Amino acid sequence: VRLVQFQKNTDEPMGITLKMNELNHCIVARIMHGGMIHRQGTLHVGDEIREINGISVANQTVEQLQKMLREMRGSITFKIVP
């Protein structure tokens, strides 16, 4: 398990697509080339996201998580399992 932190201070999309796997874990499905996450190089396709800013992603839908990420500003921390 590791923590990945980055800054999001604009309306620029993060450039990641999330999916739920068969165990209902949140997985990074795709990283858009040239997007914020791609430029930082901190997340990778297949990484499992456990928490966003200390909030568990368990029992949340992809749509709920994407909305939460769109609305966040400032420092964002993901707890991930590579």
Rank of each mutant, 00 (worst) to 15 (best):
Q60C: 12
D47W: 00
E63W: 06
I27R: 04
E48F: 03
H38V: 02
F6D: 01
M32Q: 13
Q64M: 10
M14K: 01
I55A: 12
N24W: 02
E51T: 03
A29W: 08
G54V: 01
C26F: 06
P82D: 10
N21D: 13
M36P: 15
Q64D: 14
E71I: 10
I76M: 08
I16L: 15
I27N: 03
R30A: 14
R2S: 08
L69F: 07
I16F: 15
V1F: 11
T77G: 04
F6G: 03
G35K: 06
L69T: 07
S75P: 13
G46K: 01
H33S: 13
N21P: 03
G35R: 04
H33I: 13
R70I: 08
I37G: 04
V4N: 02
R2H: 09
A29H: 12
R70V: 12
H33W: 05
G41M: 04
G41N: 08
Q64N: 11
V57I: 14
I80H: 02
V62R: 07
K19M: 08
Q60E: 08
G54P: 00
V62F: 04
V4T: 04
M68S: 13
V62S: 13
C26Y: 08
T42Q: 13
L3F: 13
C26K: 05
G74R: 02
R73C: 12
I31H: 01
A29Q: 12
R73G: 11
H25K: 12
I37S: 04
Q66D: 12
V81C: 10
R2A: 05
D47K: 00
T77C: 09
R73A: 08
L23W: 13
V1N: 15
N21W: 02
L43G: 00
I31K: 00
G34Q: 05
V57S: 05
I37D: 02
E48L: 05
T77M: 03
V81Q: 13
H33L: 06
S75Y: 06
K19Y: 12
E48S: 08
L65D: 00
A58R: 11
I55M: 14
K8G: 04
L65P: 00
V57Q: 01
I76G: 05
V28M: 00
G46L: 02
C26M: 08
E63Q: 12
T42S: 13
G35I: 01
P82S: 12
T10Q: 07
M36H: 15
Q5H: 09
Q40K: 09
G35L: 04
I76E: 00
L43N: 00
L23Q: 15
K67A: 11
V4K: 04
R30L: 04
R50G: 03
V57L: 06
H38P: 07
E63D: 14
E22R: 13
K79V: 04
A58S: 11
I49K: 01
R50Q: 12
L69P: 00
M36R: 07
E63Y: 08
G74D: 06
L3Q: 14
I52M: 02
E63V: 07
H33R: 13
L23H: 14
R39V: 05
N53T: 02
N59H: 13
D11V: 08
R39G: 06
E48V: 09
L43H: 00
Q7K: 12
M20A: 06
Q60D: 05
I16Q: 01
H25R: 12
A29Y: 05
V28Y: 01
E48M: 05
E12R: 06
H38Q: 14
V81D: 04
K19Q: 12
Q66G: 10
P13W: 07
V28H: 00
E51V: 01
G46T: 00
T17Q: 13
V1E: 15
E12P: 01
I27M: 09
N53K: 01
K67E: 14
N24M: 04
E12V: 06
I80W: 03
M68T: 10
I49L: 07
N24I: 00
K67T: 13
V28T: 02
L18S: 01
G34W: 06
N53Y: 02
E51L: 03
G34Y: 02
L18Q: 01
V28F: 00
G35D: 04
Q64I: 13
G34P: 03
G35S: 14
N24V: 01
G15E: 05
L69C: 07
M68I: 08
M14Q: 02
G35Q: 07
Q5G: 13
H44N: 11
I80M: 05
M32N: 15
Q7W: 10
I37C: 11
F78I: 10
H44A: 13
D11A: 11
L3N: 06
E22D: 15
L69Q: 02
Q40F: 07
K19S: 14
P82H: 05
M20R: 11
S75N: 11
K79Q: 12
I31E: 01
V62M: 09
G54A: 05
R30M: 06
Q7F: 12
I55V: 11
K79C: 09
K8E: 02
E71D: 13
I27A: 05
L69K: 00
G15P: 04
N9L: 14
V4M: 06
N59P: 05
M32E: 15
I49S: 00
E51G: 09
M20K: 15
E48K: 05
R50D: 03
S75F: 10
C26N: 02
L3G: 03
T61W: 01
N21K: 05
P13N: 12
E22I: 05
I16T: 02
L65I: 15
T42M: 14
A58W: 07
T42K: 14
E51R: 04
N21T: 10
T42C: 11
G46W: 00
V4W: 03
A29N: 05
I16Y: 02
K8D: 03
Q60V: 06
I55W: 08
I31C: 03
I80E: 00
N59Q: 07
G74S: 03
I16P: 01
C26V: 14
L65S: 05
A29G: 08
E48Y: 04
G34E: 06
D47E: 03
S56K: 14
V62D: 11
R50S: 08
G74M: 01
H44Q: 13
M68P: 02
V57F: 03
Q40Y: 06
V45C: 06
Q60I: 05
I76F: 05
L65E: 00
M68H: 12
A58E: 14
I16R: 00
E63H: 07
R73E: 12
S56D: 14
M72W: 10
E51C: 03
D11Q: 14
I31L: 09
M20Y: 12
E63R: 06
I49Q: 00
Q5Y: 11
A29D: 08
Q40D: 09
M14R: 01
V1I: 15
L18W: 02
I37W: 03
M20N: 05
R2K: 09
G46P: 00
G34C: 04
G41H: 08
Q5T: 15
T77K: 10
N9D: 14
V45I: 10
K79D: 04
N59Y: 07
M72V: 12
E48Q: 08
F78R: 01
P82T: 10
I16E: 00
R30H: 15
E12L: 06
K67D: 14
I16V: 08
G54Y: 09
M20Q: 09
V45T: 14
G34R: 05
R70G: 13
H44P: 00
R39L: 06
V81R: 11
I76T: 04
H38I: 04
M32A: 15
M68Y: 10
E22N: 08
N24C: 05
N59F: 12
N53F: 05
T17D: 15
H25N: 14
E63K: 10
M36D: 10
V62T: 13
Q64T: 11
Q66E: 14
S56L: 08
D11E: 09
I31T: 04
K19D: 12
M20D: 02
E63N: 10
N53I: 01
R73S: 14
N53A: 03
L3R: 11
F6P: 00
S56A: 14
V28R: 00
R70Q: 11
M36T: 13
R70W: 08
R50Y: 05
D47R: 00
I80S: 03
F78L: 13
G74V: 01
R39I: 04
R2I: 11
Q5E: 15
N9F: 11
I37M: 12
L3E: 15
V81F: 12
V4Y: 05
T10C: 15
G46H: 02
Q7Y: 14
G54M: 04
R50K: 14
T61E: 10
T77L: 09
F6W: 04
H33M: 11
H38Y: 08
T17E: 12
Q64G: 09
N21S: 10
R39K: 13
I80C: 08
T42F: 12
Q60M: 10
R50W: 06
E22W: 06
